[in-house]
């Protein structure tokens, strides 16, 4: 039987450090989208709480392993199954990276048309938005770090855009 080599979405491309900023790949064990059917949101939230320790967070928020992922859908880091929702295994569909370092907001400000400064975009806040031409999900994970998720097929484009912005910010000193 053929032995296949599994590659992560950013294999061979990360880590990348320029100036004070470092990008590393985040490889979730599994990603499962959960879209509750009409009238089932509360029950789904309770079921998730029992299974992964966090229910469905509010719009534009992350709570533990559960992240709001757009209109009527949440993404769970982990393999789960719940009743009353459309549940889809999306584990290999997304490229996830962490970008971290002093002044990381300056890098993202060149690419993302949403105010990500700490005064308005706090830890656990989520933005479904664009990074250059890409649809992305941006989550603040710490005082100087963000998690960025994009479609797996776009991982190289994401890293190219980040790299150009990181070089630009580093060059300004």
């Amino acid at each position: 039987m053929a032995s296949l080599i599994a590659l992560t979405p950013c294999a061979g491309l990360l880590p990348l450090t320029i100036g004070a900023i470092t990008v590393t790949e985040v490889v979730p064990q599994a990603l499962t989208s959960v879209a509750p059917f009409k009238g089932h949101k509360k029950a789904v939230s309770e079921a998730l709480k029992a299974k992964v320790g966090a229910g469905l967070p509010a719009l534009n928020r992350r709570s533990g392993a559960v992240t709001w992922f757009g209109h009527g859908v949440w993404m769970v880091a982990g393999a789960v199954s719940v009743e009353g929702a459309a549940v889809t295994d999306q584990s290999d569909a997304w490229a996830v990276v962490e970008i971290k370092g002093a002044g990381v907001e300056d890098v993202l400000a060149r690419l993302v048309p949403v105010d990500l400064r700490a005064s308005v975009f706090k830890k656990g806040h989520v933005a479904k938005t664009m990074l250059a031409h890409l649809s992305v999900t941006v989550v603040r994970t710490g005082a100087d770090s963000f998690e960025i998720t994009t479609m797996r097929s776009m991982s190289k484009t994401l890293l190219h855009d980040l790299e150009v912005a990181m070089r630009g910010v580093a060059a300004r000193g």
Binding site: L59, G70, G72, K128, S135
Partner: peptide
Amino acid sequence: FHEGGCRA
């Protein structure tokens, strides 16, 4: 369509 956002 909020294509580059929540997709609503």
